[in-house]
Design a protein around this nucleic acid. Structure first.
Lengths: 143, 143
DNA sequence: TTATATGCAAAGCTTTTGCGCTGGC
DNA sequence: GCCAGCGCAAAAGCTTTGCATATAA
């Protein structure tokens, strides 16, 4: 049983074949697939699945807080099973590759800034967009 | 002449009545309007304006780097004239209010993290989502 | 059994685009 | 006068939904 399926059961969600398959696809993904990709991967496992169900299921999972929705600026939503430990994303604007990172210091700052403004932090999103540094680049000299 | 119109001229953009009006609406906005809002405000100044032109114009301004596009997770894009100094956003999830803030330390960290990962930072987005802290809240005690 | 989930196709929303007309420069 | 910009309406892309059928509990 996959990680996400276990979480579904813990949340008391009714498990259908479709949900199990979608949970598996999302659990096994090491990228950040959009709905279309999830649908394609799920269809390969079982063609008896519809795009509407994928949309309904990712929404369900999201509302159950076991799936995170991201928007990397390309017009569609991308998904990622809620990781054990939080992380942020750096998007390579040349290749579209997504690099995950975690920085303790920046996490503390987020909390502190919200507090200073009079808010309790309930969510946060940080995305960095960058181009790979090559030795010839000016930026490389900074290192 | 509004701030944004001046920037348009500096960038050498051809100025039509419509662009001037849209620039004015965006310059005078102290919120983060979506295209529909910009269209409505512009229409009040001059009804001879179409939604398509608003879309084309915000895109043009964005490509000229004089307008910033945001996505606060409600399905449409929100716009803000590029501020003199960069800032991030905290979104009040109860009221939808958007608070702008700037934190030197977090800005430096963004750059440093990208560099550490081998990237030159070309863009970044930080949004905090929070609920207002009342004296009765548990979080209030942290202050 | 009974409420809930699914598939299909239609519709909804935001955003883009083709085309003939208008208007800056 | 010419090329870019505009309005209009159609279409495109992502996502949601109505309805009849199927299925988990």
């Amino acid at each position: 049983m996959t990680h996400l399926e276990r979480l579904c059961i813990e949340k008391g969600l009714k498990m259908t074949d479709q949900r199990r398959i979608i949970a598996r696809v999302l659990s096994e993904a090491d990228d950040h697939p959009d709905v279309e990709s999830v649908f394609q991967r799920a269809s390969q496992i079982d063609p008896r699945i519809s795009l509407a169900t994928v949309y309904r299921t990712v929404r369900l999972f999201q509302e159950a807080d076991i799936l995170a929705k991201h928007d990397f600026g390309d017009g569609r939503s991308r998904y990622e099973s809620v990781p054990l430990e939080h992380h942020d994303h750096l998007i390579d604007v040349e290749s579209g590759k997504v690099v995950e990172f975690f920085d303790e210091e920046i996490e503390k700052l987020k909390e502190a800034i919200a507090l200073k403004l009079g808010y309790a932090l309930v969510g946060h999103r940080l995305e960095l967009y960058g181009t790979p540094i090559k030795k010839s680049d000016k930026a490389y000299k900074k290192i």
